[in-house]
Design a protein around this nucleic acid. Structure first.
Length: 693
DNA sequence: TTTTGAAGTCTCTCC
DNA sequence: GACTTCAAAA
C-alpha cells in the first residue's frame, strides 16, 4: 500500500447476507476481483457486454459494506443517462444506503462544486451557464465587436472559433497546432483567433457567464491550486469511480489527479475499443497511459461477454479486429446457438423503412416487448422516414440523442426572457431578446447593450435607454413585461411556469409572425411550461436545463412512462452502455457510416469503426444491419445514385452474416442466400491564460 | 437602419 | 431541407 494511502475508519456494519450472496453469486472471478479490490488505483478493461456496470455498482456496494460512507464516494460518468442508470442499480443492490453516493457527469459535478465553493474563489455563485449555442453566439458578438467579420477574406465563423477554443481548453494543444492540424486554411488568422479568445474571455467574466469548458477548467484549477480550499475539495471523497474512462479528455484526467491527491483510490472502467468522443477532446491515451500515471495500478480485464450470442460476437469481434492500437481482448460467451446477424440490402430508403417496421412488428408478435428493440443510426436526422412510418402505423417510440428541443430557436427565445431576469448582464440573452422586437436590429440591439453596460447593468438600465423612434413601441412593451415579472415573487410552486406564461403573452404573437408552422412550436412552449412546473425557481430551472436537457420526447412531460412499452430510436452515440434484445442498424452506407466528413484522417475513420462496433454490440439475440441500395439525391435534383455498403462490413465480416435482399412491397425477404477575499482567483487565472484585458 | 427575398452553404456525435 | 449570408428595397 502506498504511503499516501488513507487508512479508513473501519466501521463494519451488519452486512445483510442477501447482499453478500448477491455479490458473490452473480459475479465471475474477474468481476469479483475488481469489485472487492482494496484501496489504490484500479483499471478495469471491460469489453462490450462484460458486465461493466454491474461490476462498478458492485464495487460501490462493496465499499459501502466495508464501511465507507456513501457520501464520500463519487461516481463520475460521461452521459446523464449512464449516471441515472448507475445510481438506480446501486440502489437496487444496496438499498437506500446508496442514495448518499454522489454521482453525475463531470459537468454536473463541477457545477455543484462551483455553486458551493466558487464564491471563495472569485466566482460569483449566481453565474449563468451557457450551452454550446450560447457560447457560439457570444463568440459571434466578440467577433463582430472586433470588426473581424467584415468582408475581405473569410474569417472563421463562430462555430469554428468555438470549436478551436473548446478543443484548446480540453486538450491543452496550443491553438496554432490545432489550426495547422484541423484548419490549415485559417493559419494566417492565428492572431485573430487570439484576439477573439481574449475578448470572449473578458466578456464571459464581465457578464458573469460560464461555458461548459469553464466548468471543467475551473474545477481543475481549483484542485490544482495550493491551499485550504483545494484541500477541502479534494478531501470530499475517499473513493472516486469513473465510468467510460476512454471518453475522458486531458482536462478531466487533471481533475481526477487533483481530486485524488490525498489518496489514490481511483477506479476507472473503460474499453478502448469503444472510444467515440474524440470530437470533445477525448483521448484513449488516458486509458492506455493510466498504469504509468498511477504507479501500482492493478489491471483487471473483463472478457466474458454476457450479452450477445456467439454469432453476433463473431461479427463484432471480426469488425474490431481490424482496428489498430488497442488493449487486445478476446470476448467470448457461453451463450451458444442463436441466429446469424442479418445483412439486409433494401432497394431504397422506403424499403429499408418497411423492412425494419415489419420485422419489429413480427418480433413484437413473437413476444418481444417494444422496449427490447432499438433502431440505431449515425446521426439524428437519419430516422426521419422511419419516424413518419412508425407514427402512421401507431407504433410508439422515443428518440434518444440530439438536443433538438433546446436548440430550437423559439425555446431559446423564451428562455432568454428568464435569463435576463436572472442575470441582468447576460449579454447573449439580451441580444437575442432585442432582435425579436420589431424595429430593432443588430445595430440597435448592440447599442442598447452598450448603454446598459455603461450603466453597470442596473435594473432600470434598459428602461432608461433611449431607443430610436422606430423601436419605441417594442422597447416599451419589453420594459413593461420585465417590470411586471420583476415585481412577482421569485420562489414558489409553479412560479417559473407562470413566468413563462406571462412571457408568452408577448412572445406568442412574435412567434406567429416569424414562423409558418406555428402549432408544433407552440406545443414545444407548452412542454417547456410543463417542465418548468417542476422547479422551485428560475435559477434551478435554467441550470438544470443547461446540464440535463430533456432528451427523449418522453422526458418532456408526456405520460410518465418508463413503464410504457415503447420502441427506442437512438444515435449510435447515445446507445452506448445500453443493450436490447433486437437491434437494427440502418443506413450502413459508405458516406453515412462512416460519414463522408470523417474520411479525412485515418484516426477519424478508426473512430467511426469503433462507433459501428458500439452500435452492433448493443444486441443480445437479434441483429439486423440494413442499407438502401439506391438513394434519391435531392441536392442536385439528380436521379437515384447507387450506394456502397459501409467499408467496415468487409468480406470477412459479411461471411459471418446472412444476407437478404428486400424488393417486394411487403418487405419480406426475397432472396435469402445465406464573498471574502478569494483564496484563488479563478477568473484572474482564466484572464491571464488568454491575455484578456 | 431594418426588413425581406434570394442565393449559397452544409449537413453529426454531447456536456 | 434548414439555416446563413448577401444584396436590394423600404
Amino acid at each position: 500500500m502506498p504511503d499516501d494511502a488513507r487508512v479508513y475508519p473501519e466501521r463494519p456494519r451488519e452486512v445483510e447476507p442477501r447482499h453478500a450472496n448477491t455479490l458473490a453469486g452473480e459475479l465471475n472471478e474477474a468481476q469479483s476481483r475488481a469489485a472487492t479490490h482494496p484501496d489504490g488505483p484500479l483499471l478495469i478493461i471491460a469489453g462490450a457486454g462484460t458486465g461493466k456496470t454491474r461490476t462498478l455498482v458492485s464495487r460501490v456496494a462493496h465499499l459501502i459494506e466495508r464501511g465507507v460512507r456513501p457520501e464520500r464516494i463519487l461516481v463520475l460518468t460521461f452521459t446523464r443517462r449512464a449516471a441515472q442508470e448507475m445510481l438506480a442499480r446501486a440502489e437496487r443492490l444496496v438499498g437506500s444506503a446508496s442514495r448518499g453516493v454522489h454521482g453525475g457527469t463531470f459537468h454536473a459535478t463541477a457545477h455543484r462544486l462551483l455553486r458551493r465553493f466558487g464564491a471563495e474563489a472569485g466566482l460569483p455563485s449566481d453565474f449563468t451557464i451557457m450551452d454550446q449555442g450560447d457560447a457560439e453566439d457570444l463568440m459571434q458578438l466578440s467577433r463582430a465587436s472586433l470588426g473581424l467579420g467584415d468582408k475581405k477574406k473569410r474569417f472563421p465563423k463562430k462555430e469554428t472559433l468555438h470549436h478551436v477554443y473548446s478543443r484548446h481548453v480540453n486538450t491543452e494543444i496550443p491553438v496554432p497546432a490545432i489550426l495547422s492540424e484541423e484548419y490549415p486554411q485559417f493559419r494566417e488568422y492565428e492572431e485573430g483567433f487570439a484576439k477573439v479568445f481574449a475578448d470572449y474571455t473578458a466578456r464571459k467574466i464581465d457578464r458573469n457567464l460560464v461555458d461548459y469548458d469553464d466548468l471543467l477548467l475551473f474545477w481543475a484549477l481549483l484542485v490544482e491550486s495550493n491551499g485550504p480550499l483545494a484541500e477541502r475539495i479534494s478531501g470530499m471523497y475517499d473513493h472516486i469511480l469513473v465510468d467510460e474512462y476512454q471518453d475522458t479528455n486531458h482536462l478531466q484526467a487533471r481533475i481526477l489527479r487533483g481530486m485524488c491527491r490525498a489518496h489514490r483510490n481511483l477506479t476507472v472502467v473503460g474499453d478502448d475499443a469503444q472510444s467515440i468522443y474524440s470530437f470533445r477532446g477525448a483521448t484513449i491515451r488516458n486509458i492506455l497511459d493510466f498504469p504509468a500515471q498511477y504507479e501500482g495500478t492493478v489491471i483487471v480485464p473483463l472478457e466474458e461477454n454476457y450479452r450477445s450470442t456467439q454469432p453476433i460476437l463473431d461479427v463484432t469481434n471480426t469488425l474490431i479486429s481490424r482496428a489498430e492500437e488497442r488493449y487486445t481482448k478476446n470476448l467470448f460467451t457461453k451463450r451458444t446457438g442463436g441466429e446469424k446477424p442479418w445483412l439486409v440490402t433494401a432497394h431504397d430508403e422506403s424499403f429499408q423503412t418497411r423492412f425494419v417496421v415489419d420485422r419489429i412488428l413480427e418480433l413484437h408478435e413473437e413476444g418481444t416487448p417494444l422496449r427490447e428493440i432499438a433502431v440505431l443510426f449515425r446521426a439524428g436526422y437519419m430516422s426521419a422516414d422511419l419516424e413518419i412510418e412508425l407514427t402512421a402505423r401507431n407504433i410508439p417510440f422515443e428518440k434518444w440523442g440530439g438536443l433538438k428541443f433546446l436548440e430550437a430557436a423559439h425555446v431559446k427565445d423564451v428562455l432568454a426572457f428568464l435569463r435576463v431576469l436572472e442575470n441582468p448582464r447576460d449579454e447573449v440573452s439580451w441580444y437575442r431578446l432585442l432582435l425579436l422586437m420589431p424595429g430593432i436590429g443588430d445595430i440597435t440591439a448592440r447599442g442598447a447593450i452598450d448603454a446598459m453596460s455603461l450603466l453597470m447593468w442596473s435594473a432600470d438600465a434598459f428602461a432608461s435607454y433611449e431607443p430610436p423612434p422606430r423601436a419605441r413601441a417594442a422597447h416599451t412593451a419589453l420594459v413593461q413585461l420585465l417590470d411586471a415579472l420583476r415585481s412577482h415573487p421569485t420562489e414558489g410552486d409553479g412560479i417559473v411556469s407562470h413566468e413563462i406564461a406571462r412571457v408568452r403573452r408577448l412572445y406568442d404573437d412574435i412567434l406567429r409572425e416569424r414562423y409558418d408552422r406555428v402549432e408544433p412550436r407552440l406545443a414545444d412552449l407548452d412542454q417547456l411550461q410543463t417542465i418548468a412546473g417542476g422547479y422551485p425557481n428560475r435559477a434551478a430551472f435554467l441550470s438544470a436545463l443547461a446540464l440535463e436537457p430533456p432528451q427523449a420526447t418522453q422526458d418532456l412531460g408526456f405520460g410518465s412512462g418508463s413503464e410504457d412499452d415503447v420502441l427506442v430510436l437512438s444515435t449510435a452515440h447515445s446507445s452506448k452502455g445500453r443493450e436490447w434484445d433486437a437491434v437494427f442498424v440502418i443506413w450502413a452506407v459508405d458516406g453515412w457510416f462512416p460519414m463522408s466528413r470523417a474520411l479525412g484522417s485515418a484516426e477519424q475513420i478508426e473512430e467511426e469503426r469503433r462507433l459501428l462496433y458500439v452500435a452492433l454490440t448493443r444486441a443480445r439475440n437479434h441483429l439486423f444491419v440494413t442499407y438502401p441500395l439506391n438513394v434519391y439525391d435531392t441536392r442536385r435534383g439528380a436521379d437515384y445514385s447507387i450506394d456502397q455498403l459501409s467499408r467496415f462490413l468487409d468480406r470477412g465480416v459479411r461471411e459471418k452474416m446472412q444476407r437478404v435482399v428486400v424488393e417486394k412491397n411487403d418487405g419480406a425477404p426475397v432472396s435469402p442466400d445465406a464573498g471574502t477575499r478569494p483564496e484563488i482567483d479563478l477568473r484572474a487565472l482564466l484572464r491571464g491564460r488568454f491575455g484578456a484585458a
